[in-house]
Amino acid sequence: MLETRALTKSFGAIHVTKGVNLKLEKGERRVILGPNGAGKTTLFNQLVGEITPNSGSIYLDGQDITAMRVADRARLGLSRSYQKNTLFDGLTIRENLGLSAAVALGRGQGLWSDPLQSPEVVETVREVAAQVDLAPYLDASVNAVSYGIRRQLEVGIALATRPKVILMDEPTSGVGPEMSKGFHRLLKALPRDLTVLIIEHDMDLAFDVADTITVLNYGEVVFDGLPEAARSSQLLKDIYLGAWEDA
């Protein structure tokens, strides 16, 4: 479903991703682990087209999308949520989800009707709001809700596009344990045909939802395998304990 081949990106002398090879099957849930600065978000930015790689290629559903623009990749079914909330502040939660659904349905530039009133968009908003536990807050302004609800909306906007592949960049970043459990439930309840790639630091969540785990360190894939193997990996422990540099 989503594949990278030797994906490499440098900023000057700093290699942010080095020859990254990933292959996600349809419906796979893969968690990317790695310490800060490992190149996880930069990898996401390359996958969605916000950063152009120096070399290597990206395939979505067998199609080479390496040179494709951000919006074109999104229209093919690639969606993402951001580590830092990237919402439509000032609009309501309903409008945020509705706008996302309308654009994904190709109604973002129509002139003859209000897409937010269309049955498809209304239905999508209702379903996604239920998925991310936002139904009680639909008419609240984004500016007026808590950080945790904004995190839920961040994921909701990505889901409202009805993607084939969703990339989630630290969805539980900054939320409390209760809300983290909510995300846990949300991830477990996602449709099985949806391919999910998650950057996550919450190990409990990562090991519970992941079919496979990839570990990045200094831009390189240093582990790629099943959660059980990752859990017992000395290499992974060393990386998270900071021993990798000494190894």
Partner: peptide, 25 residues
């Protein structure tokens, strides 16, 4: 009140996100 108008308001608030959702900005 049209799709374009809704997107226009969205662009004012967050152009980057609308592009990532698939809008040709």
């Amino acid at each position: 009140r049209s799709g374009l108008g809704r997107s226009l308001v969205g662009l004012h608030h967050n152009e980057k996100r609308l592009r990532a959702l698939g809008l040709t900005v």
